Amino acid sequence: MNVIDVRDVVDLHIRAMTNPKADGQRFIASEDGQITLPEIATLIRNQRPQLSPQIPTKVMPNWILRVGSLFSKQAQEGKLLIDINRNVSNQKAKQILDWQPLSNNEETVLATVDSLVKYKLLEN
């Protein structure tokens, strides 16, 4: 997955609105690199162990999701996540807007989890 901290999105938008070189341009708001759902699960289990009971430990093989997508709308939606090309680059934003993400994938995921717990959208 490609993730981005909302604070990075705000920073990027402000830079794009105030920089004349950004006129008519589009910029990709994404942290550097990617993170997989199993990596996210491991990160949460390791860094927020109180949430471990809620985090799945098994990974469904892609082939099962692909076969299931022939019969299930939910599996079709899941299959889309497998098929999306996630090879994106934020280099244009870095070069034109002198932008750097404030955080990395791991920090963004943990900040999101902490926010979900804080606002009781995820039980601790």
Results as ranks from 00 to 15, higher is better:
Leu37Thr: 05
Ser115Pro: 00
Gln34Asn: 10
Lys79Phe: 13
Asn124Thr: 08
Asn124Met: 06
Val9Glu: 12
Leu97Asn: 01
Gln91Met: 04
Asp23Met: 08
Val9Ala: 12
Val9Asp: 06
Asn2Asp: 13
Glu106Met: 04
Asp5Leu: 02
Leu51Tyr: 05
Thr112Leu: 08
Asn104Val: 07
Gln50Ile: 11
Gln50Asp: 07
Asn19Arg: 08
Ser52Pro: 08
Ile14Asp: 06
Pro53Ser: 12
Ile96Pro: 06
Asn62Pro: 11
Ala29Met: 04
Glu106Val: 05
Ile96Tyr: 04
Ala22Asn: 03
Arg66Thr: 13
Asn62Met: 09
Asn124Gly: 11
Gln100Arg: 08
Thr18Arg: 11
Asn87Leu: 13
Lys73His: 02
Ile28Tyr: 14
Val113Met: 07
Gln54Glu: 05
Ala75Cys: 10
Lys21Trp: 03
Trp99Pro: 03
Asp23Thr: 15
Ile44Arg: 03
Val6His: 12
Asp8Ser: 11
Met1Asp: 02
Asn105Ala: 06
Asp5Gln: 07
Gln91Arg: 09
Thr112Glu: 02
Val109Phe: 09
Asp114Ile: 04
Gln34Lys: 15
Pro61Gln: 03
Gln91Tyr: 13
Ala16Asp: 12
Leu43Ala: 03
Gly78Ala: 14
Thr36Ile: 00
Val10Trp: 11
Gln34His: 12
Arg86Val: 10
Lys58Phe: 12
Ile84Val: 15
Asn90Asp: 10
Leu12Cys: 05
Asp32Thr: 10
Glu123Ser: 09
Glu39Asp: 09
Glu107Ala: 14
Leu80Ile: 10
Gln47Pro: 04
Val113Lys: 00
Asn46Phe: 01
Tyr119Pro: 01
Ile55Asn: 01
Pro20Asp: 14
Asp114Lys: 00
Ala16Phe: 11
Leu97Thr: 02
Met60Gly: 01
Asp98Val: 07
Phe71Glu: 14
Val9Cys: 12
Ile96His: 02
Val6Asp: 09
Val3Phe: 13
Asp5Thr: 10
Leu43His: 03
Ile84Met: 15
Thr18Lys: 14
Lys120Leu: 00
Val3Arg: 03
Lys73Trp: 00
Lys94Gly: 02
Lys73Phe: 01
Asp32Phe: 10
Asp32Glu: 15
Glu39Leu: 01
Lys79Met: 13
Met1Leu: 02
Leu80Trp: 01
Pro38Ala: 02
Ser103Arg: 09
Asn62Phe: 04
Ala16Cys: 12
Asn19Ser: 08
Leu51Gly: 03
Thr18Met: 06
Leu81Ser: 13
Thr112Val: 06
Ser52Glu: 15
Ile55Ser: 01
Val117Ile: 13
Pro101Cys: 04
Ser115Tyr: 05
Asn46Ile: 04
Glu123Asp: 03
Leu65Ser: 15
Tyr119Ile: 00
Glu77Gly: 00
Gln47Tyr: 12
Trp63Thr: 11
Thr108Leu: 04
Arg48Ile: 10
Arg7Met: 15
Lys118Cys: 03
Lys79Cys: 15
Leu12Pro: 01
Arg26Pro: 00
Ile40Gln: 07
Val59Ala: 03
Ile82Ser: 06
Phe27Pro: 01
Asp11Ile: 06
Val109Ser: 09
Arg15Thr: 00
Val117His: 03
Lys94Trp: 09
Ile84Pro: 07
Gln76Asp: 02
Glu106Ile: 02
